[in-house]
Write a protein that binds this DNA or RNA. Structure first.
Lengths: 231, 231
DNA sequence: GAGATGTCCGCACGGTCGTGCGTTCAGTAC
DNA sequence: GTACTGAACGCACGACCGTGCGGACATCTC
């Protein structure tokens, strides 16, 4: 019974945001989005364990059981929140570059998008994935796995962008892509952390400075030219 | 009432581990240490909010009210846990270098101590302060302030070590100490994060490589010599 | 119209949480 | 010996937690 309820709503999510039938009102999906919009912000501030069905229901003037029925379990709510946050992240950081050709300047744009995504507080508590990574890093279970997967995807995307830039001749052929990806991501996350914890926005400048130096020192003459471009 | 109890036990801690009178048995302080040893580990894995008096009491075969009475409130337990973790951190990372003269190699040793402190899992969930920083970064209150203070202290210590190394001629006079401190700490924390979340210990190698490159590129000839030393 | 479907609510459950009471008990002082 | 102190306990409280059942109420299908 509870299983059927849970799997129904769960499947509804997994199939995406498309209408179930054409033209349906979809009040459910609307409430879902309302809830997820709130849970993403809460989780970025207080963590995924800080989500409480009662609190969400009160804040959104819904009933606790209504929220519960939408997701089937608290864990499924957490997983849905992660998926929703991944979509927002992609939309903010990755999608704007979908038509930008590979190269050093594209990598730099990717980093700038990330820093803007963090400093603009797309999520109230700073980068969503920084918050929940630290929260679930040492635990086990589906939520940890989902967080780890998201991070792997992001790292892989950064590495791919660097590889492509190397392939078009913007970086030296012997560039250690994984190393520079590690360093660049480290700098950006540190800026997020310092900014959120201490309210010190200078950290974003330090990160940008560090990222630029890393990219520049790895670039070929062609790459350096691209990095000096107006953008 | 509860206030007086809390402040009493709180003061007991702040005065340190010394005996209250000479030769006293101090069962209380012993239990305190037992509890804090456990809470530091729990908090590094599940966060300071993951601490629960009942759970701690069960695990250590104490009564919940006994644990509660020792600290006076949950928040005071969290603060005591932070103080205890700071002491452990200092003992592991900073104290071993108290007789090492300032210089580039001392800075490198400081970084190595940190990476060892993280990779040896002095706390089960990796660096304690990484975990609780992310947990409380976007909140307000005494716990946030204590975490922020600890981080400021650590950053300041790193910057001082770099300044001293610059003063003895190991780094260029125009070195931006705050910038390199930011970058070095970013690399180390990223290694901690990646290692704990993904179980990928290669991250420590990447961090060490990055740190060495940063220090080397900032060093004078004298500093480079120090960095090439056997140690 | 009647019926089916899905959304959301009211309400209750068992459990755990932090807190606080009074009490027991070991160790010290007199 | 008695008196005192502090540590730890047993127990209970109100609040909140996630979960689940059954029903109300729209909306769509026939």
């Amino acid at each position: 019974m509870s299983g059927s309820t849970g799997s129904t709503t769960g499947t509804g999510t997994r199939t995406g945001s498309g209408a179930k039938t054409d033209g349906r009102v979809e009040r459910g999906n609307q409430t879902r989005r309302l809830v997820l919009g709130r849970t993403m912000d809460i989780a970025s501030i207080e963590g995924l364990e800080g989500l409480s069905l009662g609190r969400i229901a009160t804040e959104l003037e819904l009933s606790k059981s209504g929220v519960f029925a939408l997701f089937g379990s608290k864990e499924e709510l957490q997983l849905a929140t992660i998926r929703a946050a991944a979509a927002v992240f992609a939309e903010q950081v990755v999608t704007p570059l979908k038509d930008v050709p590979p190269g050093a300047s594209r990598v730099r744009a990717l980093c700038r998008n990330w820093l803007t995504y963090s400093s603009d507080r797309v999520f109230s508590g700073g980068c969503f994935f920084y918050a929940v990574s630290a929260e679930f890093d040492a635990r086990t279970g589906p939520v940890h796995d989902a967080v780890a997967r998201a991070r792997l995807d992001w790292t892989a995307y950064m590495e791919r962008s660097l590889s492509e830039a190397r392939a078009v001749g913007d970086f030296a052929e012997d560039l250690d892509v994984e190393q520079i990806a590690f360093e660049v991501i480290a700098l950006m996350e540190a800026a997020n952390a310092q900014s959120v914890l201490l309210g010190d926005t200078r950290a974003y400048g330090r990160a940008e400075q560090g990222v630029t130096a890393r990219l520049r020192s790895a670039a070929t003459a062609r790459g350096r030219a691209a990095l000096t471009d107006p953008a």
